Simulated assay, not measured.
Amino acid sequence: MTVYLRPIALVDSPQSEEGEALRLAGGLTYASRFALIRREGGKVVERTRFGVAEAGRVIRGEAEEQWEALRSPRAPLQMGARTVRLDQPQVMGILNVTPDSFSDGGRHISGPDVPMVHASAMLEAGAAMIDIGGESTRPGAPPVWEGDEIGRVVPVIEKLARTGAAISVDTRRVGVFEAALAAGAHLWNDVSGLRHDPRSLEFAAHCGAPVCIMHAPGKGEDLHEDGHYGDVVLDVFDWLRARRDAAEAAGVARTRILLDPGIGFGKTLQENLALMNALPLFHALGCALLVGASRKRMIGALSNEAPADKRLGGSLMLAARMMEAGAQIIRVHDVAQTVQALHVWRGLRDAALTDFGQLVG
């Protein structure tokens, strides 16, 4: 039997519940009610709802580890000379150096200085880090030879590293990340969940860099295939828990592991929406959450098939949902607009935390 501890009622502040609210993962999100879910044979057999004051009576066994994970702050990421704190949401800017990206179609490789200009603009707008990708992972995209991928990302990393920026690399190949690390990168963002390359787990343990493990159902070149779920939320949770455990067993410290539910990878619109609504659950895995839904197909599906470059409103709505859920890193194309939304969200949250007037009445 498997156990899941899901926050089901988020509140603006602990004082709004007279102290009976749990601060999730040391961030700025608070939960007052939870569901303890038990599943056996792929079916939910029990669901118990409780408040913070009842936790001591309800939580036993495996649920105790998840309860502690919900309560525990996430350690900051050390990325070169930069320390990225995870006690509030951070924005990761996307820099695609591919000719076939779904979102920009190679616009950022149109000249030798274009990637750096775009990266600099995102950093100036408030991105905490830049995520550089040299292979498109959209459905149907052809695989890229490792040497070509290195040739795309390394020159940009070398230039960007000289600015002191925090750099993530979006790749599923050990050889690419090894070259990226030598060029000045800091974080490995692996959309295959450390499965594509048989050396991945060993290298992740050896290199010492933080690594993001993303859920994708496909085992081969197509990460989008075989997306079949009984309960997408609980199935993805189980998958990420297993990959987290495999990484830890290989020698990767939990403080270096980030998890990503893989919005848009082998999932239907309904499944993506279910995962977005369930994001607070994933704090129970005890790792920082990195989530990317910027400009993705689900937005077009909900907005009269708007093309990728016309999905800003939907992207901001999903980013706001990530902020509310306490996701530590929000991966986006539109950095300036997302950072502005984050500043406003943070202002609202700070006001709620200091508004003691609501206790009077």
Rank of each mutant, 00 (worst) to 15 (best):
M129I: 08
D100M: 06
A125L: 08
I132K: 02
D113W: 12
H108R: 15
E135D: 12
A63G: 09
I130A: 05
T137K: 01
R71A: 13
R152H: 09
A69Q: 08
V156E: 01
E68R: 14
A141I: 06
D104A: 06
P143G: 00
E149S: 05
S101F: 00
M92A: 12
D148N: 15
T137H: 06
G147N: 13
L77Y: 01
G105Q: 14
L77M: 04
V84N: 04
I130R: 00
P115I: 05
V156T: 05
D148A: 15
L77N: 01
R107I: 04
A63E: 05
Q90V: 11
E124S: 09
S120F: 04
M122F: 07
E149Y: 10
R85T: 15
G133F: 02
V154M: 12
P112M: 08
D131E: 13
M79W: 05
G105M: 02
G134S: 15
S110I: 05
P73H: 14
V144L: 14
P99R: 14
S120C: 10
A119I: 09
A125T: 10
R152D: 07
E64N: 07
G93K: 00
M122K: 03
A69P: 03
A75K: 15
D100P: 04
P115M: 09
T98F: 03
R74G: 06
S110G: 08
P139N: 06
V144A: 08
W67L: 11
G80V: 13
G147R: 08
Q78L: 14
V153G: 07
S101L: 00
I130F: 04
N96I: 01
A128W: 03
P142I: 07
R82C: 05
V144K: 06
M79N: 01
S136T: 03
Q90G: 10
M92R: 04
G134V: 12
M116W: 12
P99F: 13
V153H: 07
I157V: 13
I109A: 01
G111V: 04
A128I: 01
I132D: 00
V117G: 02
V153M: 15
G111Y: 06
G105D: 09
A119T: 11
V153N: 08
R152Q: 07
Q78T: 12
V153A: 07
L86N: 03
D104Y: 02
V97S: 10
M79K: 03
P76L: 12
H118V: 10
A121E: 14
P76D: 10
P142K: 09
H108A: 08
R152E: 10
P139Y: 11
I109K: 00
